[in-house]
Write a protein that binds this DNA or RNA. Sequence first.
DNA 1: AAAATTGATATCCTAAAAGATATCTAATGG
DNA 2: CCATTAGATATCTTTTAGGATATCAATTTT
Lengths: 107, 107
Amino acid sequence: MAYAAETIAPRLKKAREQKGLSQRALSAKTGIPQAKISKIENGVIDLRLSTLIELARNLDLDLMLVPRKSVPAVQAIIGSDAGGGSSQPDQIKPAYSLDDDEERDDV
Amino acid sequence: MAYAAETIAPRLKKAREQKGLSQRALSAKTGIPQAKISKIENGVIDLRLSTLIELARNLDLDLMLVPRKSVPAVQAIIGSDAGGGSSQPDQIKPAYSLDDDEERDDV
DNA sequence: AAAATTGATATCCTAAAAGATATCTAATGG
DNA sequence: CCATTAGATATCTTTTAGGATATCAATTTT
């Protein structure tokens, strides 16, 4: 497996965490079972392109083929906020609790 | 299948052609059977990540996950020479045999 | 015209991803 | 202390990619 494989899985995991999503939450969004997300993030399985794209899509990421010579330039761009704030936090990590089924008793 | 899937296959094909490689030549380089390369380029199969990376590697391309918000910027960069000259032609294209164009009259 | 290349397809078999479920442990929280 | 949540694993079945080969039609080359 080429090196890109080792770099993609961690990026997916990081993006998910930065969006404040649990594997199960992402599973619900994507339809991809939590067990599989776990394996993917740990590089246990060699997932298919459609699966990768589906995951990426739900994490506001896009899969691109970049000419080798342009990689540094691209990294300079995405490196600055690489998966950083992404678009919208989607979920800012509730300090209290509420997820969506629990009422807020403190506001 | 997300849209990225439709965009990746053609890019692989274009990159291969621009490097002057036949499917069989690429097959020899990668070990991936020609029959499969054909299917991949035509979007007939949902290839695995390792396969995609292997193909990309041999075409001087790198697979990257780009934050959606950065996609336009990245496209601006790689768009200018997207899969263009890449690194080295890999195949020096015999001037006499002319396999591309016949503009050999003015240099 | 005959020969060689190129890309697309087809079949057979095998390996592995995918999908559905169920646990198990560790950490969190009421 | 018990309940919930999160992530990692395991098992079972189905589906499909992957590997090996062969062939065919359309070009291209000689």
